[in-house]
Nucleic acid binder design. Sequence first.
DNA 1: CGGCTGATTGAAATGCATCAAACAAAGTGG
DNA 2: CCACTTTGTTTGATGCATTTCAATCAGCCG
Lengths: 235, 235
Amino acid sequence: MNKNNNTLTEDVSLTGFRFFQSLTEDEMKSLNNEKVCSAYKKGSVLYKEGSRLTGFYCITRGIVKIYKTGNDGKEQIIRFAKKGDIIAYRSLLSQESACTSAKTIEEATLCHIPYKTLLSLIERNWKFSLAMLKIVCAELKEANDYITDIAQKTVRERLAEVLLLLKQEFDLDSEKTLQISLTREELANMVGTATESIIRLLSEFKQDKLIDLQGRKIRIINLPALTKVANLAKY
Amino acid sequence: MNKNNNTLTEDVSLTGFRFFQSLTEDEMKSLNNEKVCSAYKKGSVLYKEGSRLTGFYCITRGIVKIYKTGNDGKEQIIRFAKKGDIIAYRSLLSQESACTSAKTIEEATLCHIPYKTLLSLIERNWKFSLAMLKIVCAELKEANDYITDIAQKTVRERLAEVLLLLKQEFDLDSEKTLQISLTREELANMVGTATESIIRLLSEFKQDKLIDLQGRKIRIINLPALTKVANLAKY
DNA sequence: CGGCTGATTGAAATGCATCAAACAAAGTGG
DNA sequence: CCACTTTGTTTGATGCATTTCAATCAGCCG
C-alpha cells in the first residue's frame, strides 16, 4: 500500500476563502479552473526539502505540518497550517527549492495552484500582491518571535507557550480539549527539545492541575496559570 | 548630548540600488523626491518595538542591528542590515506596530521612504511588488533556518555558524579580519547564549587555531575547520 | 585620575539530553 | 482472532553543556 496516495475529489471551490477575496469574478473563475484539488490520507508527504515545486497549495480541509530536517535528521516543526492557509509559496516566489517539508497529520484536502496562475495574479491585481505580502510578513513576525523564544526561554516556558499557541490556532472543544492531536515527539519537535522532556513536563503540568491528559488528548483546565508559566510578552 | 541625534545629509540618490531596479524613470524620480535621507551616529535608535512607523528605510551606509527584547530584557539579535538593505518594511506592510527595534552599530546613512510612496509603488508596478515579495521570502527562509539551528545545535556549533554568516555578509579584509565589530554581548545575543559562554568558546576557537583575536577584531584563519565545527547543512 | 563599560576567569549549580529498559497501544499477517 | 511487530509512551539514572554568580582586570573618555 502506498501511504502517499491521493485521490482527486469533487471540485472544491476556492470562492469565499479570505486569501482570495481581492480577486475579481473573472480572476476567481480562472483560478477555480486552473487549480487542482486532491484529498490526501493522513501522513501523506506533499513535498520535501530540496524539491522543486510547480505551484503552491491552499488547504480546504485538514491539518498540514510544515517542518525542516536538521543535520542529525531531527525534525523541527515550523508551523501547522489549516483550512484557509496557503503553503509552499515561499520557495515558489523565491524560485528556489523548498527549504521545508510538508506532511498531512490528518486526512486533508488541498488545492494546487500553478506558478503561472500565481504570477498572473501578481501581475494583474495589486491588491492580491498586497494580501500576499501581508501573509508573508505575518509569518515572518511569527518566525522572529519564535527565534527569540527558543533562544531565551526555558523548555518549560516554551511548552506552555506552544500549548497556548495550539489552543489559539485550533481551539478547544466543549470539554476544553485541544482540537489537534500530536504525538509527544511532534510536541518536542515544535518546542525544540527531547521527547522525554516533553513527557516529564506534561505530567508536571498535569500534577500542577494546569492540564489534563488522556492519551494524546490535552485538556487545558487552568488557562491563566498556564499563561503565567508561559511568561508571555506584555504587548 | 543627545545620542540619537541625526543630521540631514546631502541628498543621496537611490538610483542604482538593486532593490529599486524595477522602477521606471518617473517612479525613481518621485522616490528620490519623497525620500528623506539622514546621517546617524553610532548607537542611534531608529525605532523601537511597539512604535508606529511612517515609512521604511533603505540603508546607504553603515550597519544597523535589528533586534527584539525578550521579557527578561535580554536582547535577541534578528539580523544585521547593511548598504542596500531595507528595514522596517514588515510592520509597515502589516500595518502593525514594530515587533523589532533597530539601532546603528556604526555611523550610518538611511533614507526614509514614506508609506504612501511604498503603497503607490505596489499599486503601479507589479515587478516592484514581486521584488518586495522576494525580499520578505528570503528573510523568512533565513528565519526558518535560524529556528532550526537554535533549536537543534549546540552553542559551539551556532557560534561557528554565526562567524561564517558574518564573514559571508560583511566579508574579511586583506588580513582575514571580519569587517564588522561586535561586542561579546552582541555575539551572545546573536547566538542566543550567555556572554561568558561566547568568551570561553572564542578562546577555545583561538586555541584550536580556527580564529585569532585582537580585542573585537576576529581573524578567521582556518575556514574549513570552522565550517566543520559549524556542522552546516549539505544543500 | 576616577568612573564606566566591556572582557575575562573561576567555581558552583542546574536544566536538559542521553541512554536504557519496560510498557502500552495499534496495526499486520497468518 | 491471536501472536507479532511496530510505534509511541513512560520512568529512572547518569552525564554534561551551559548558566549563573562573583570577582578581577583592561581599556577608554571626559
